[in-house]
Simulated assay, not measured.
Amino acid sequence: MTPPLRRTRLRPTDTLRLGMIGPRTRKMRSALSALGISLGIAAVIAVTGISASNQAHLLERLDRLGSNLITVAPGNGADQKPVPLPPTAEKMLANIAPVQQVTATGATKAQVYRNDLVPAQQTNSLTVLAARLNLLDVLHATLQSGHWLDKASENLPMTVLGDQAALRLGVSAPGERVWLGGQWFVVTGILAPNELAPELGTAALVGWPEATARLGADGTAAMVYLRAHPERVPDVQTVAGATADPANPSTVAVSRPSDLYTARAETKNSLTGLVLALAAVALLVGGVGIANTMVVGVMERRGEVGLRRALGARGGQIAVQFLIEAVLMGFIGGVGGLFVGGLAVYGYALAQGWPASIPLYTVIAGPLVSVLVAAVAGIYPALRAARVSPTDALRSA
């Protein structure tokens, strides 16, 4: 009587070597299978990357428009009269960690007229403000013509007019003079309209040192403009009042979140949901493709499976062999998809003029998810191969 075959245990290296038989002997089919996985992962990378790049572009534009701009101004006290900000308010607000930029304007006692013959009461509702040199940078403001104040002109009788101020004074170009604070000031520039700070449109802006020396400015900020980290705007708004005036925080007027900030949050949330939904669809399609490829592979290799079973291989060893094949194809496809998808994202972003952005979690999760999807998709084909009857498999070979 012939003794039964003794079943032996395979070492991990032997199991891995068996799992690589399929990819080595069926190079074209394995390459096409890996290509299918690569396209799925590339679709995930491209969808998430292009969406993230578009999101970064939109958020950057919203931030430039002022979604992270906060204004701090004097509020009213118990007697309903304005309470000035302390002289230290500007510096104290600049010390808030999420605050990125700070600038300010200050009130003066001067009025501006077209010439020295205009009656004093005809002010045209114009104001004269002391201005920091970084005012345009923080507000992302521009000039219609001329140039902004610099370190030299801020100490001289020179001014920049808001667009409405220039219109009411009849000033059409830089180089003209206006009667400001009882003396002539040369107009160096005219501001373009700015929706973030409409109060500047009816103002004549003078360098801070000149306004302090000649126009009665006391060095106190009448309006402080803050640029905060976009994600920390509510936090800055919460502490801005107490920081600007610790003794009387209730008398400080801090702007509330603007419609732009709300739009920014909605844009970020909606695009994130879209990215996740499209990524899930792409992974589902990739997983179905892997499962289909593995099922076909099992059917084509019934003879091989039957021969191994007849020689004593256990069902678990057969299942592990096919599962390793699926995982290998998933890993190769995931790495290839990451590379192809990354090229697609950077190429598309470059063509659109967007900042290229691929989420870090996508870069890390791409190959890992492809392996996981391949393993899940390969479970059924592997179990099917393990259940193949040696007799039926050899008969059909």
Rank of each mutant, 00 (worst) to 15 (best):
T262N: 12
V296W: 06
A310V: 01
L139N: 07
A52K: 03
L10G: 04
H229P: 00
P86Y: 06
V252D: 09
Q80S: 13
M299P: 02
E300G: 06
P234M: 02
G316K: 03
A385K: 00
N248L: 11
F322N: 02
P84Y: 07
R214I: 02
G337L: 04
G22T: 12
G189N: 07
V160W: 05
L135P: 05
G75Q: 05
N155G: 14
A52I: 03
A52D: 06
L129E: 11
A89R: 05
N76I: 12
L200T: 08
Q164F: 08
Q111K: 13
E304I: 00
Q122P: 03
N124M: 15
K151L: 12
K151D: 15
Y261R: 02
T188K: 11
P174W: 03
D116K: 09
G36C: 04
A265L: 13
A192H: 10
G77K: 05
P119W: 03
P230E: 10
H57Y: 15
V47Y: 05
L328N: 09
T267K: 05
Q352W: 02
T48N: 11
A46C: 05
T267Y: 05
S38N: 02
T105F: 01
V295H: 12
V160T: 07
L161D: 04
G306D: 08
G66M: 00
T262H: 14
R6V: 13
L200F: 10
L117G: 12
F185S: 04
S389M: 10
E231H: 12
D163G: 01
G353A: 09
L196A: 15
A197G: 08
R387C: 00
S270P: 00
L135T: 06
V102R: 09
I364K: 03
I70A: 01
A221M: 09
P234L: 04
F339Q: 10
V206G: 09
P82A: 02
T2C: 03
A344E: 06
S33C: 13
P84K: 09
V99C: 08
N292A: 13
R308K: 13
V128Y: 04
Q55V: 08
G303D: 04
G201W: 06
V206W: 06
L135M: 10
L338N: 02
L276C: 10
A244N: 02
T13D: 15
P246T: 10
M223E: 14
L278E: 07
T127R: 13
R29W: 04
I364G: 06
R11L: 12
V187P: 02
G330A: 08
V83P: 00
M329H: 09
L394P: 00
G287C: 09
G201H: 13
A34F: 04
G216Q: 08
P390R: 02
A173L: 12
L149E: 04
V285P: 07
Q55R: 12
E231V: 10
L260S: 04
V373I: 15
V298D: 02
P3T: 15
A221I: 05
N124W: 12
V340I: 15
R9G: 06
T391Q: 11
E266Y: 11
A385F: 00
S153M: 05
R61A: 10
P86D: 10
L126D: 07
I41W: 01
